[in-house]
């Protein structure tokens, strides 16, 4: 655990010593503002809540999270520092978890910087703060799932652009699996069980439940399982590359 944390600290410092962190945070917060106030009509709706912001969050994350995750392994592989890291006495788990944790903390920092919107709705009205807290939690869990997928893809290549594009594509599939677009492709030939199974993998279905304020343990477990599965897959890829 100490080793994972040492790796996380190094990664976090790497985010903030390069322009990446600042560019990401500024763009993330600005886009959140734009989507919430402009597209989401946060003021005009006449309701004191943060639905517009959290409604757009999965789509913002679709582009921004793979940009954070793409460098996790691809950059180290390209620069050769992976050899330095993996010949230190760290286990594959230490490295995978440490890197993931740093990226997740970073995404959490960015998400928390949307707090002025929270303050605003509280100033203007009387929102259900329980729902807002649940939404933040849902957003954070979703960021973690996206990062776990992005990190896994990043471990397979030394090219960050490829890591970004494939990462975003895989995340998109997971998002869409609950929507009519994907569901209709299965309907008509697949048994109900399969359709439900595909639907159950949808990020949006689970996320929408959470941001409506319906905190169901199963939705939480879904995101945590996705994180667990992809971190494990990430470890497998790192070990496979070692044997290749």
């Amino acid at each position: 655990m100490g080793k994972s944390w040492a790796i996380s600290k190094r990664e976090l410092r790497a985010y903030f010593t390069t322009p990446l962190a600042y560019v990401f945070i500024v763009i993330f917060v600005a886009l959140n503002g734009v989507t919430a106030f402009y597209f989401g009509a946060l003021f005009d709706r006449g309701q004191a809540d943060m639905q517009p912001l959290f409604g757009f969050l999965p789509w913002l994350y679709l582009f921004l999270i793979p940009a954070v995750a793409m460098r996790l392994w691809a950059e180290e592989r390209k620069a050769g520092t992976l050899e330095l890291l993996m010949t230190l006495p760290v286990s594959t788990f230490d490295a995978v978890f440490g890197k993931f944790l740093a990226a997740w903390i970073f995404a959490g920092i960015a998400l928390s910087l949307t707090f002025p919107v929270w303050i605003t709705v509280n100033y203007l009205g009387d929102p259900d703060n329980g729902v807002i807290i649940a939404s933040y939690l849902g957003g954070f869990l979703m960021a973690g799932s996206y990062l776990a997928i992005g990190g896994f893809v990043s471990a397979m290549t030394r090219n960050q652009v490829i890591a970004f594009v494939i990462g975003a594509a895989v995340i998109f599939l997971f998002m869409m699996s609950g929507l009519e677009l994907v569901q209709s492709a299965f309907r008509g030939w697949a048994p109900e069980l399969v359709i439900d199974l595909v639907r159950s993998f949808s990020f949006l279905v689970h996320y929408d439940a959470i941001i409506r304020g319906v905190i169901d343990v199963r939705d939480m477990i879904f995101f945590i399982s996705i994180i667990g599965v992809f971190l494990f897959a990430n470890m497998v890829v790192v070990d496979l590359k070692k044997g290749a």
Partner: peptide, 10 residues
């Protein structure tokens, strides 16, 4: 390691 790879931003 060969080529002394290091984290250049540190």
């Amino acid at each position: 390691p060969e080529g002394a790879p290091l984290y250049e931003d540190m």
